[in-house]
């Protein structure tokens, strides 16, 4: 114990002796001043301003009315649709991404497939926003290629069945285009971390492949999988450009609602708009915290 403390002290001394011991310690802090000033102005101040605004009424007095206002049906509905689409795309994207990643890590496929998948995932997870919406309109829109082919080959008229690319499921399919590649990028290191020896040790102790997956591999991977899916949730929860370009604002997402509030105060109450944003940040903060908690846990296991 004391040994450790000594070592810490020693390394600290080393750090100080590196340059002349500064007579003005505040000069040392000056080195990071630009960074903190920048983030103060462009992250903390805007966030704080929204937070303050959410507790004020039109006259600038303190009120909780804005948060009560979040309970109006249209707002609740916007949160609900956003959460639903995020859950759906996180689950589906997570599953597809996991199987893909499994295929290239443990599935016995050649190395070039892995390289190709990871490159493609990097590109696709970054290919979002306006152009992605265009691509899906060209694919699954009323005159889109897949819509036409399904009709020609199988006689399946998607739009007669009630499907629309501008709907909840259309947007979900669009989001999946960047969701499952993100899953591949996040979960592949975890699957790489599964040691071959674990499988062999389990077999050696009499376990079948199934028991190995149930009692060893899946429990080890669970924090990583959950963490990755939470990341996917946040990824789609905060998305705005894709949804707006695709549905033109018809789908009542929370980001779309905030967007129209910025443009024209559609809620007739600026405070309510700020409360919407604060509510969103709270949800994002909870998911991010959960993600880091789970990631720390899985790192502890997978590094051994």
């Amino acid at each position: 114990m004391s040994n450790k403390a000594d070592m810490k002290k020693a390394s600290h001394n080393r750090g100080v002796s590196l340059t002349r011991p500064s007579k003005t310690p505040w000069l040392t802090w000056l080195g990071v001043a630009p960074f903190f000033a920048f983030t103060l102005f462009f992250i903390f101040l805007p966030s704080a301003s929204l937070l303050v605004g959410s507790f004020q009424n039109n006259a600038g007095q303190f009120t909780l009315q804005n948060f009560i206002g979040l309970l109006t049906p249209s707002v609740v509905n916007a949160y609900w649709v956003s959460i639903r689409i995020s859950v759906v795309t996180a689950l589906l994207g997570g599953l597809l991404g996991f199987f893909l990643s499994y295929a290239v890590t443990l599935g016995g496929l050649p190395q070039w497939v892995r390289a190709a998948l990871l490159t493609f995932s990097s590109v696709a997870s970054n290919f979002a926003g306006v152009p992605l919406a265009f691509a899906f309109i060209a694919t699954l829109g009323r005159t889109g290629m897949v819509t036409a082919l399904l009709k020609a080959w199988f006689g399946l008229d998607l739009y007669a069945q009630g499907f629309s690319v501008y709907s909840f499921w259309g947007l979900s399919l669009t989001y999946l285009y960047f969701q499952f590649p993100l899953m591949v990028l996040v979960i592949t290191p975890a699957l790489d971390g599964l040691k071959r020896e674990w499988r062999e040790a389990a077999e050696n102790l009499g376990a079948s492949g199934q028991i190995y997956w149930l009692r060893v591999a899946l429990p080890i991977l669970t924090p990583s999988i959950l963490g990755a899916m939470i990341l996917l949730f946040g990824n789609s929860f905060g998305a705005y450009a894709t949804a707006l370009s695709l549905t033109g604002g018809f789908l009542n997402l929370i980001t779309i609602l905030i967007g129209s509030q910025i443009k024209g105060d559609v809620l007739l109450n600026p405070g309510l708009g700020y409360a919407l944003a604060v509510g969103m940040v709270i949800i994002m903060a909870v998911t991010t915290a959960l993600y880091y908690f789970l990631r720390r846990r899985s790192e502890r296991w997978l590094r051994i």
Binding site: K195, E197, W198, E200, A201, A202, E203, N204, L205, G206, A207, S208, R215, V216, I220, R300, W301, L302, I304
Partner: peptide, 16 residues
């Protein structure tokens, strides 16, 4: 898994 021989690995391979 049906041999009933015990194996100890270089990397311990304990289930974390």
């Amino acid at each position: 898994n049906r041999r009933n021989v015990g194996m100890v690995f270089q990397s311990y391979a304990l289930f974390p």
